[in-house]
């Protein structure tokens, strides 16, 4: 399994998101390393189609596939929780769903 996390320094969401990802990987007994990739500029964000930090990719698939209207920039990413509220941290079930699918 290839696990990549794109992030930028502008946003404080990386560490709490990594904690959730690590918890899921541990629960699912997955030992693969997490590859961290820092996005440094808006130009790089466009090139990598980075819509915000963190972007968690499991085997290249985004845990929360972006809508067409999303734009690429150094920014915090918004995740919609099941109750419809917005969070800067991906819900653990969102991560788990794709990890199990790609296991």
């Amino acid at each position: 399994m290839n696990i990549t996390v794109l992030y930028c320094d502008d946003c404080p969401s990386l560490n709490p998101s990594l904690d959730r990802l690590k918890k899921v990987l541990s629960d699912e007994n997955i030992k693969e390393e997490i590859l961290l990739k820092k996005v440094e500029s808006n130009e790089e964000a466009v090139k990598l189609k980075f819509i915000g930090s963190p972007t968690i990719l499991i085997n290249g698939i985004d845990i929360d596939p972006p809508e067409n209207k999303s734009y690429f920039a150094l920014n915090c990413r918004a995740f919609k929780k099941e109750n419809g509220k917005i969070s800067p941290i991906p819900p653990i079930d969102m991560i788990r769903k794709l990890v199990i699918q790609e296991k």
Partner: peptide, 8 residues
């Protein structure tokens, strides 16, 4: 508007 922390 856009920041998820602001929205939260």
């Amino acid at each position: 508007n856009h920041c998820p922390y602001a929205q939260a």
